[in-house]
Amino acid sequence: MSEGQIDEALRSELQRQGVWVTSMQELYNWGRKNSIWPLQFGLACCAIEMIATAASRYDIARFGGEIFRPSPRQADLMIVAGTVTKKMAPQIVRLYNQMPDPKYVISMGACAISGGPFKQGYNVLKGIDRYIPVDVYIPGCPPRPEALLHAFMELQRKIDSQKLTGAGKAEHLDAKQPSEFPVPAFGEHDLQPPANPDVYHPPVLERQS
C-alpha cells in the first residue's frame, strides 16, 4: 500500500460501523478539485465557447467551476481560450505569474496549442506552452463546450492524484519548483526569448533511416 492511502477493506468496514475515515490528502484534494475558480479571461473565438460552457445549457457549475474571477489573484485556473498574439503573450505570462499557487492552465483550442489556423501569421505565438506550463490541452477550433468540460474533469483527476508529501509531491508544495516564469520582451523581430527552455519541451522527432 502506497503512502497516504487507506486500506479500502478497512475503510468500508469502519463505514459500516458509522465511522468515516479519510486522509488529509484526500480531503484536501477533494476540496480543491471541486472548487476550481477559473480566471475570467477570453482571447478570441474559444472564449465564446467558454462562456457557453458557463451558461445555461452546459453549466460548468455542476463541476464547481462557475466562479469566474476577473482578478488573477483569486483564480486557480487559467483557461487560455483563443489565439495568443505576440503582443498579448507577455500579458498572459504576467497574469500567470500573478496567480497564487496552486495554479493550473488549460490550453483551449488549436491556436493556444500551436497557433492553429493562424500559425503562418507573423504576429501569432505558436503555442502558449512556450512560456507557461500547460496541464490540459483541448484540440478543436473551437472545442465544443463538452470538450472543455472533459478537460475540466481531466484537471480534476490530476488534482485528485496529486500528493501532499513524499518524493512525488505536487509541484506547488515543492519550494524548489518555480511558480513564476520570466516575461518575454518585444525583440527586434520576435519575442525575446522565443521560448522559455525551462518550460518548453517539444517532442524530438528522430529521423528513421
Binding site: A44, T83, T85, K87, M88, F118, G121, Y122, N123, V124
Partner: peptide
C-alpha cells in the same frame, strides 16, 4: 492589435 491575426495577409 492584441488580437491581430493577419487575416488580410
Amino acid at each position: 492589435g492584441y488580437l491581430h491575426r493577419n487575416h488580410e495577409k
